[in-house]
């Protein structure tokens, strides 16, 4: 297992290296000016600015400097936003994003597991129909539509929550719900399929034959066996969350990295875009790696054949 994890981390670093390199050179190809008010600047001023940002050096050298910087957690300096270091921008904005993201994933997977399990246990009853209906709605309706609907009814019409303001927990509720819909639907659907399979399996019948009540059977045998595969979809869901956070943060004016990313794009702030791209990719590969390791830890079949996985 240890060797397997090391190998995976090796691949992860390689992937990130390729992404960083690709992003860097793509940025160099970008049209458009890096300076917000370039139109008003003289050639002389631009030269000074270029020097200040190191843009006058040969591209390979710029690349080298950038990569070395990355290793130290230095993503360069933002061209916009008062010339703050990108790392500082990220640090100051990651809090709200993380809060909403984590709340959404906990709410989404938690409710999804519950909904999926109930739907499977009460398969082909009205409970199942209702759960399936919610799963379809959650999967189909785009998160930004959800966000807007929530904002309209709960915040604007009923005034239960702030419309677009970042101020503590109550302002995080609506964005969390909007973000949680997709993971909720995905989890519920996946959980239902897994649970239906498990409930049809022989070992569940054997558990019943041992004298377990239906509830005990679900709690002791069915739940764990259907939960293990659910771990595998956390990776893809994390991606959806990152994408979703950009638009949801925008709608609710949350000072997070998603909103920052959209802002950077519209203002051609290359260092910030690069930094955030690398950050998003890193988070993604790390989440996937953690999920894989977690899966190996909780599934005894993989845990003990870990040595085979190395090959």
């Amino acid at each position: 297992m240890g060797k397997y994890i090391l190998k995976r981390i090796g691949y992860m670093i390689l992937t990130l290296f390729i992404i960083a390199t690709a992003t860097f050179f793509l940025m160099k190809l970008m049209p458009g000016s890096p300076y917000a008010n370039q139109a008003k600047m003289t050639t002389e001023q631009i030269k000074i600015m270029d020097q200040q940002y190191g843009l006058n050096k040969p591209i390979v050298q710029q690349y080298w400097i950038y990569m070395i910087g990355l290793l130290h957690g230095d993503f360069g300096t933002s061209f916009q936003f008062n010339n703050q270091p990108v790392s500082y921008l990220i640090a100051s904005r990651i809090g709200p994003s993380m809060q909403i993201g984590l709340q959404a994933i906990i709410l989404g997977t938690g409710l999804g597991i519950l909904l999926g399990a109930i739907a499977a246990i009460r398969k082909n009853t009205w409970v199942d129909t209702v759960a399936t209906f919610f799963a379809i709605i959650g999967r189909s309706i785009p998160n930004f539509v959800f966000a807007v609907i929530l904002q309209f009814f709960l915040a604007f019409k009923l005034g239960l929550f702030p419309i677009a303001l970042w101020d503590g927990f109550s302002s995080s509720i609506l964005p969390t719900i909007a973000l949680a819909m997709a993971p909720l639907a995905t989890t519920a659907r996946f959980m239902r399929t897994e649970m239906v399979d498990v409930l049809n399996s022989d070992y569940i019948e054997l558990a019943r034959a041992k004298g377990n009540s239906p509830w005990q059977t679900v709690a002791k045998h069915a739940l764990r066996n259907s939960l293990i595969p659910v771990v595998t979809i956390i990776g893809p869901m994390a991606v959806d969350l990152m994408v979703g956070s950009m638009v949801v943060e925008n709608i609710f004016s949350i000072p997070g990295i998603g909103e920052q990313f959209v802002k950077s794009i519209t203002t051609n702030d290359y260092p910030t875009i690069m930094g955030l791209t690398i950050l998003y990719s890193t988070m993604l590969v790390v989440v996937i790696l953690i999920v894989d390791i977690l899966y190996g830890l909780i599934d005894p079949r993989i845990r003990l054949s870990g040595s085979e996985a190395q090959n």
Binding site: D202, Y203, E205, A207, A209, K220, H221, N225, I228, P300
Partner: peptide, 13 residues
């Protein structure tokens, strides 16, 4: 006692 021992034991217990 069930028919198929390959599937009648809980794989995670």
């Amino acid at each position: 006692i069930f028919q198929d021992p390959m599937t009648s034991l809980d794989p995670t217990m």
